[in-house]
Nucleic acid binder design. Structure first.
Length: 424
DNA sequence: TCAAAGTCAATACG
DNA sequence: CGTATTGACTTTGA
């Protein structure tokens, strides 16, 4: 019963009585037609399992599944991703939870013992039960959540990994977009593969266009992606710098900004590419995600795929420097406005966001700074003002609603770090 | 040539 | 050290 050890399991089911486990994966794009259907339980399983699953004649026994307790390496550290209609935060970490939602599961070996907890997947109603692990999680008592919506007892867990104690191969890395890649077709029809119509979208206050499941334009919920990336980086202790450079081919500062202030997808231009990469990375099996991070930027770049022509036009900056860069003597640090200069400029900006060239000149003289600097100030001010406005509207409602929960999640997340082994 | 969008990357912060 | 901020550079589109 250790056939799956060391391999990816993209989907997983656990029977209502929490005794058997059904794994499916890895690479297959699609699940078997009946994957979501529990076999007709022949035994007197759980009481409330009086489901309405089509009472087909196909009687199967859960014994065909792998007994849950025979896999000692299992432990689930569930990072869930709420798709919608839930009061739960958009995502977070839970110690246990019954299904009805889709989860992003991460399993670490040294956490396996925690799974032994009989509480795991106890009921068939979605419920958060943190009694089994996370000494810390216990501190938080407000994560309980009820969600009666269920799929007739069906459950799915996505992207989970099962660690093994013996042979496993760290190959399995999948292609994914990375640096050197640049495809910006208004309608990325590049790969018409019908990937899992995993539209990462949630019910936000933002007006969402109702696209069909067609593989039209993959709309990405940037806020959701950003949140998830933040969690991933935190859980696996991946520095922004590492992720930014190896996966996104961007600088740490840029990543930080994108993560904290993600602009709505529809407001992005070429910047969509960066979010696409983050999204793509999130869709890969955990081992692949982590393995890529272990490589050098170059390796990662190639490993992940194509290195087409025009790399994102930012790779090689030509910083202004003397024609001869051999003498770093006159090291001019970055310019920084003095309090007075900044205050003056901000005051002017308030009343006049778009000063005329003459005004720019006057300000430059008055503040004793170059006109370019003045122009840059207004340009940056306008852009960041717009940006702020665009991100605030969406974030606000959401935050006020889940502020507390998120704060608690953060605590739980931090606790998980204590025994995460997948980091180097 | 100008403005906007996307970033870089120095450096301010904690 | 890792993350957030931010003045300025680069690329795009008009």
């Amino acid at each position: 019963m250790k056939g799956l050890h060391g391999k990816y399991v993209d989907y997983l089911q656990v029977d209502p009585s929490n005794t058997y486990i059904n794994k499916y994966g890895p690479p297959q794009e699609e699940l078997p037609e009946d994957f979501l259907d529990f076999p007709e339980s022949p035994k007197k399983s759980s009481p409330d399992s009086s489901s309405e699953t089509t009472p087909t004649s196909d009687v199967q026994d859960f014994s065909s599944w792998e007994p849950l307790d025979t896999d000692p390496s299992i432990h689930m550290n569930i990072v869930y991703e709420s798709e919608a209609e839930t009061d739960l935060p958009t995502n977070g970490v839970l110690s246990s939870m019954t299904f009805n939602h889709q989860f992003d599961v991460i399993i670490t070996e040294n956490e396996r013992k925690l799974l032994a907890e009989e509480e795991f997947f106890k009921d068939s109603n979605m419920k958060i039960d943190r009694s089994s692990d996370l000494e810390s999680a216990k501190q938080n008592g407000n994560l309980s959540q009820q969600d009666t919506a269920n799929f007739g007892g069906k459950s799915i867990i996505q992207r989970q990994q099962i660690n093994i104690e013996d042979g496993e191969e760290g190959n399995s890395m999948r292609t994914s977009p990375n640096c050197e890649e640049q495809e910006n077709q208004p309608d990325s029809m590049k790969t018409l593969s019908k990937q899992k119509p995993k539209k990462v979208r949630k019910s936000r206050q933002a007006p969402l266009k109702d696209l069909h499941d067609s593989e039209v334009e993959e709309e990405i919920d940037t806020i959701d992606v950003a949140t998830r990336i933040i969690n991933e980086l935190k859980i696996h202790r991946i520095p922004q710098k590492t992720f930014a450079e190896r996966i996104l081919c961007r600088s740490q500062g840029t990543l930080s900004d994108l993560l904290r202030k993600p602009k709505p997808w529809h407001m992005l231009k070429s910047g969509q590419e960066t979010f696409r990469r983050m999204h793509k990375w999130l869709q890969q099996p955990i081992t692949a995600r982590l393995s890529i991070l272990d490589m050098s930027p170059e390796e990662a770049a190639e490993a992940q795929g194509l290195l087409p022509p025009t790399p994102v036009p930012s790779g090689a900056r030509k910083r202004r420097m003397n024609s001869d860069e051999s003498e770093p003597t006159a090291k001019v640090g970055r310019f920084v406005f003095t309090a007075h200069q900044k205050q003056t400029l901000q005051a002017v900006y308030k009343s006049t966001p778009r000063p005329t060239r003459e005004m720019h000149q006057k300000l430059a003289v008055h503040l004793e700074i170059s006109i370019e600097t003045v122009e840059n100030f207004f340009m940056n001010a306008r852009r960041r003002d717009r940006h702020r406005q665009a991100t605030t509207q969406v974030a606000t409602i959401n935050e006020t609603n889940t502020h507390q929960k998120e704060a608690e999640e953060a605590e739980i997340l931090s606790e998980y770090e204590s025994d995460d082994d997948l980091t180097e």
